[in-house]
């Protein structure tokens, strides 16, 4: 039960991260490594401000900070012509120093003695179990974020972003400035990812400079699990599916650590394998189909000659 609840909380919180990654990976068609830096940026800002007694400000600050990080990547790519993946790597790398600076040059901070938004909510709702309150807070943020995103992608700006990932030349020919569209998509994605980091810091009452390492793969795994398991036709459906994917991912991880040989440090390897396997699925299916077809053809030919 505890495990179930914990996974659900984490799955819902990290669902926001997965939404942010879905925007770059699936809608813009570029995996954006800025995510690893902007996640930690949000986490660091939130931790520092919470320790100073401003947990809400910590959350509020993460969003624009993450968006700014995304813009840096976007500018490197659109204005300076650097490959999009390399742009993300550069920003991520630079953010490491920024994040350390934000955390006052210490590689981890504890918020055990500070009031986080989760503790505030618990105080407001004393009649509810602490874990239930945590779940509600997570649900509140993720639901708001999802609804806003679903609405946003129905607006003109949202449609422009979707079309840019789909057919950039056509967007340009429709008199839409593609550079601005890319910048806003990266800002949106990284803003959401930083907000996730900010919530996670307060959720676990702990911030570590390396929290962002491998976070892109975690997000990708959630996105891909949702695509393999759930059939979705519309973008709104896909966004909701990504949340479910994130929850499923957390359950898989929880089960793997609880019931098997897997030590905690093996998690990243498992995530990477899940993503690699899921991405390889189409190619594997194809070669399997080819092999069966060939076998059948050979069997048929053999039967013919035997006649």
């Amino acid at each position: 039960m505890v495990m179930l609840l914990g996974s659900l909380q984490l799955g819902i919180l990290y669902g926001m991260l997965a939404l942010g990654i879905y925007i770059t990976f699936r809608i813009m068609n570029v995996p954006d490594l800025t995510a690893e830096g902007s996640f930690t940026l949000g986490l660091a800002l939130s931790a520092v401000l919470t320790i100073q007694g401003h947990p809400l400000l910590g959350l509020a600050a993460a969003l624009p900070a993450g968006a700014a990080a995304g813009m840096v990547t976007g500018l490197l790519h659109t204005k300076l012509g650097i490959h999009p993946i390399l742009s993300g790597i550069l920003t991520m790398s630079g953010l490491y120093s920024v994040n350390l600076l934000a955390m006052g040059n210490s590689s981890n901070l504890s918020l055990i003695n500070s009031t986080t938004i989760f503790k505030m909510a618990s105080n407001l709702l004393p009649f509810l179990d602490k874990d239930i309150v945590k779940l509600l807070v997570a649900l509140l943020f993720t639901a708001a974020c999802t609804i806003l995103l679903i609405l946003f992608f129905k607006t003109h700006a949202g449609l422009c972003i979707r079309a840019t990932g789909d057919n950039e030349a056509m967007v340009r020919a429709s008199s839409i400035p593609v550079d601005q569209t890319k910048l806003s998509a990266l800002a949106l994605s990284n803003g959401i990812i930083a907000l996730t980091g900010a919530l996670i810091a307060q959720y676990q009452s702990f911030a570590d400079i390396n929290s962002g390492v491998g976070i892109l793969v975690v997000g990708l795994a959630s996105v891909i699990i949702s695509e393999v398991l759930l059939n979705r036709r519309t973008l709104s459906g896909s966004l909701l599916a990504v949340l479910v994917g994130s929850i499923i991912y957390r359950f898989i991880i929880a089960l793997a650590t609880k019931y098997t040989f897997l030590p905690a440090y093996g998690l990243k390897l498992v995530s990477a394998c899940i993503v690699a396997l899921a991405l390889a699925l189409p190619a594997l299916k194809k070669s399997l189909a080819l092999r069966t077809a060939r076998k059948e053809a050979q069997a048929y030919a053999a039967a013919e000659t035997n006649l």
């Binding site: 607006t155 003109h156 949202g158 449609l159 422009c160 008199s175």
Partner: peptide, 12 residues
Amino acid sequence: SRSKRGPLHFAL
């Protein structure tokens, strides 16, 4: 909708 309405209006 090019240049017709603001960016945050519903596209459809």
